[in-house]
């Protein structure tokens, strides 16, 4: 009888271990607001790529109480949580920072507090990638102007200048300390450059009025504007190189697989691997700019 009980016990333990092994890792996706297109796309691509059932939470879908989210996170206690947007990351990091967290679509991730188990895909393409793609479209670009504030973008500017030099491109910068310097500095800069690279800078882009004036002055001198955000298409930017949101979701899934597979992830926060390009062909023809022979095959959207 004792032997029978022992066999039953061992069998039960074996069965439980098999069942728990089959369960697989528990993954949760927290979306700051699934109504935002780029967040929604990242989530869709992530779930498609990871091909494992995931628990999905949309923070924009209803009015959540902090306690409700806290309960949900502790109840689920996922092995890995993919956070889309800052709001999602802050909540996951507040309650379950001991779990693996992968973030994306977070503006300026460097200001976030990160744990040993935090990974992510940054929201900004690095300057070298951007210059490479700008030159892929317009191989004739030699001198690119940049307006920036030393306070926010000194390091970025130096990095861009160094990367550009290696490609035979000169980056000519004007460091601004006050927003009222924007237009006088721009007028001087326009005399020396082939294109203006409009970067994300709180001093340069302090208000809509001065932004419109920057576009107007460049248009008068037929100097193309290169930029990083699709919103500048309506202002008349010549080329916009931005992050490809579906790729970001797939990249987050690739990082998650590595983390859950126990692989060593060398770069904890990666640069985005995919680009999305808008080209204003109407303006290129108007300015008499010559684009690369095969440039048209890498453009997502044309403005004509």
């Amino acid at each position: 009888m004792k032997v029978f009980k022992l066999i039953c016990f061992i069998g039960l333990v074996f069965l439980l271990s098999v069942l728990s092994a089959d369960e697989g890792p528990k993954i949760m996706v927290i979306n700051s607001n699934a109504a935002v297109d780029k967040y929604k796309i990242a989530q869709e691509e992530f779930t498609k790529t990871i091909s494992t059932p995931v628990v999905e939470i949309d923070l924009g879908g209803k009015k959540w109480k902090i306690g409700e989210i806290e309960d949900l996170l502790y109840d689920e206690y996922p092995d890995l949580v993919y956070c889309i947007g800052t709001k999602a990351y802050l909540l996951a990091n507040k309650f379950i920072s001991d779990r693996n967290i992968v973030f994306s679509s977070v503006i300026n991730w460097r200001r976030l507090s990160l744990s040993q188990k935090t990974y992510g895909v940054s929201n900004e393409l690095n300057p070298e990638m951007q210059i490479t793609l700008y030159r892929y479209i317009f191989p004739g670009l030699k001198r690119i102007g940049v307006l920036y504030s030393g306070k926010y973008n000194k390091h970025w500017f130096e990095e861009a200048q160094k990367a550009a030099k290696e490609m035979g491109v000169e980056i000519i910068g004007r460091s601004l300390s006050k927003r009222r310097d924007t237009l006088p500095e721009l007028k001087e800069l326009l005399k020396e450059i082939d294109a203006l690279w409009l970067i994300s800078d709180p001093v340069v882009m302090s208000d809509k009025k001065s932004l419109i004036e920057v576009f107007k002055q460049c248009d008068i001198k037929k100097i193309p504007i290169l930029s990083y955000h699709n919103a500048f298409a309506e202002y008349g930017a010549m080329v916009i190189v931005s992050v490809d949101n579906p790729t970001t979701g797939r990249q987050a899934a690739a990082i998650s697989r590595e983390v859950l597979g126990g692989d060593v992830v060398k770069k904890k926060v990666q640069l985005p691997a995919g680009s999305h390009i808008i080209l204003n062909l109407k303006k290129a023809n108007e300015y008499g700019l010559k684009y690369g022979e095969m440039a048209l095959s890498v453009v997502n959207r044309f403005i004509e």
Binding site: L133, Y136, D244, T247, R250, A273, H276, V298
Partner: peptide, 9 residues
């Protein structure tokens, strides 16, 4: 495989 939009990416 990480699927990206184009060869240059």
């Amino acid at each position: 495989v990480l699927t990206v939009p184009k060869d240059i990416d």
